[in-house]
């Protein structure tokens, strides 16, 4: 009977160790989201304006304070990638935002999440430290997000109106991985065939 109990324990341990978990790479976390206003006539438009700097959203901006921007050369490389995609879809970039049919507004931000495991109470007082665990175990991860909005404005709109949005999101590896960003930009336009004006 004792042998039987060992069999049972062995089978249960085997089960517990079997939960699936593939190896995941940073690029496996890349997500591209797009959405659009179905009633908007993209084919009837053809020009757009775009800033020459990509703003970094870092929190609330006080009056008179200048925002942070994506550093060079990444800023130009990302804007060039957006422009080449828009050109391929038949759009013409113009410098005068008021004369353009739409404005393309890119922005980026990062978000760091810290995950505590346990034993953080040890930080309050050494008295609370357990047997051998003097420091809390924790991990953190940072995600990066880039958004692009196509905004319509003018006399026909009460206020600027978002007609296309794209969001690119993924875990950051610690270094600027431009290939992941440019591939995601290509994907955002690829999955938005309704933007084609040709």
């Amino acid at each position: 009977m004792k042998k039987n109990i060992f069999y049972l324990i062995g089978i249960i341990l085997l089960m517990v160790s079997c939960y699936p978990d593939d190896t995941m790479y940073y690029e496996d976390t890349d997500l591209v989201y797009t959405n659009y206003t179905e009633t908007f006539d993209f084919a009837g438009k053809g020009t757009y304006a775009m800033p020459d700097k990509i703003v970094k959203v870092t929190g609330e901006l006080a009056e008179g304070q200048t925002p942070e921007y994506v550093q060079e050369p990444y800023n130009t490389q990302i804007l060039d990638k957006i422009e080449s995609n828009m050109t391929a879809l038949g759009w013409t970039k113009v410098n005068d935002a008021e004369a353009a049919d739409l404005a393309l507004m890119p922005a980026v931000w990062t978000n760091t999440t810290v995950v505590y495991w346990y034993d953080y109470w040890c930080w309050y007082d050494y008295y609370y430290c357990g047997w051998g665990y003097y420091y809390p175990y924790y991990t953190s991860y940072t995600t990066g997000t880039m958004v692009m909005f196509l905004v319509a404005s003018g006399d026909e709109y009460i206020e600027p109106f978002n007609v296309w949005s794209a969001a690119i999101n993924g875990l950051l590896s610690g270094s600027y991985d431009l290939t992941r960003v440019t591939q995601a930009i290509d994907q955002a336009f690829k999955q938005s065939p309704y933007l084609d004006t040709k």
Binding site: N35, Q187, Q191
Partner: peptide
């Protein structure tokens, strides 16, 4: 019983929304 599958990078469309990823 635990079922699991990793789907390769692909696009999924729900109405006007499209999501692409693994």
């Amino acid at each position: 019983n635990v079922f699991y599958e990793k789907r390769d990078y692909d696009s999924y469309t729900y109405g006007t929304m499209t999501l692409s990823g693994v």
